[in-house]
Design a protein around this nucleic acid. Structure first.
Lengths: 113, 113
DNA sequence: GTCATGCTTAGCCATATCGCTAACTATCGC
DNA sequence: GCGATAGTTAGCGATATGGCTAAGCATGAC
């Protein structure tokens, strides 16, 4: 909730791109080298690299290099902060709706009398 | 999950900006006119307007104009698609982790013998 | 060593984003 | 009507984003 909450911004921003989401869903099946991630996208390697570094800087994936092959894998905990934010918001929003309900119901009760 | 899933992209993109999240948390307390949203941000009105239209196009808020005052309010259902996506991902990611656990455990059992 | 493979870096281009000012429109209060 | 108030529109400039090509490096196969 801080002003400088760049973690959330980075996460949301990383997920705002369909290509990056596509890569993530591929990675959900298991780790993969860069070129395998590039394949389905139809994008060139340098472009893919940029997407991957966005994902990595957001903490959504981790990569390791062995020989000339860089393997990418998902970081499952990465979604937590985002999920928390959404849940918090939802809680507040719905609480407000509930209060609104109560308010409306009270209005209606008053009118019944 | 479609290729052209711009809804998710729009949602994530809208939330990727701290200013917009700030506006949303303010709106969580209840509807507010444009200038009241502008206040805390320290931004000029036209800038605020742009942020608001991003939020509105993403379906996160709804606005109505009465007289010269435009009132903005949250759309609570708006978070649903995003939450679903995250939950789906989490499910798959964790399932994979579970399978990995089983795999590792099997490996260990085999070694024990 | 030589060549292919797999990634990486540098740098270009088009477009989008985020801030601003200036000028305009449309109410509301008197 | 007249001035103040609340948005709105148009358009500018700086920077970020997302794509590319070309060239460079490191490793594996021979």
């Amino acid at each position: 909730m801080a002003k400088h909450d760049t973690q959330l911004s980075d996460l949301f921003h990383a997920l705002a791109d369909p290509t990056r989401r596509q890569m993530l869903t591929r990675l959900a099946e298991g780790p993969a080298p860069v070129s395998e991630l590039a394949g389905p996208t139809g994008l060139r390697l340098p472009t893919v690299m940029r997407h991957l570094s966005v994902l990595e800087e957001a903490g959504l994936i981790a990569t390791t290099k062995e020989g000339r092959v860089r393997t990418c894998a998902i970081v499952p905990e990465a979604l937590v902060p985002m999920r928390s934010w959404i849940d918090e918001q939802r809680a507040v929003w719905e609480a407000r709706l509930d209060r609104l309900d109560t308010y409306v119901m009270n209005l209606m009760k008053e009118r019944e009398q």
